[in-house]
């Protein structure tokens, strides 16, 4: 039963108030893309044991999607941030590396 802070409401929301949305920061490939790119977009996921960037929706709250960096093994949450963030935020990467020196974005 996770606890994630919605960056819009500032509410620390119970997992039962949220809906999960899978991996974040995917790049969409549409018509004209190669089979390989499209396959990667549609099916290939990091499935990380470790820090995972993921999508959540504050379904029973403000209804907004947000993104979270969470370790799938320890459940440590390194931060939540707006869904309108195209790249992995630098401050979150710094926060992860401060705690895990050997970690890098894959």
């Amino acid at each position: 039963m996770l606890l994630l802070t919605c960056p819009y409401c500032g509410v620390s929301a119970d997992e039962t108030e949220l809906s999960p949305g899978g991996e974040a920061h995917l790049k969409r490939f549409g018509p004209g893309s190669s089979d390989e790119d499209f396959e990667g977009y549609l099916f290939m996921r990091h499935n990380q044991k470790g820090v995972h960037f993921e999508r959540w929706r504050h379904t029973y709250g403000c209804g907004k999607w947000f993104l979270a960096a969470r370790c799938t093994a320890t459940l440590e949450v390194f931060g939540t941030y707006s869904a309108q963030t195209p790249e992995h935020p630098k401050e979150i990467i710094a926060k992860i590396q401060a705690k895990r020196s050997d970690w890098s974005l894959t």
Partner: peptide, 10 residues
């Protein structure tokens, strides 16, 4: 105002 759920309903 707190938006949440009351048992199983929004």
């Amino acid at each position: 105002l707190r938006r949440s759920r009351v048992a199983q309903a929004a």
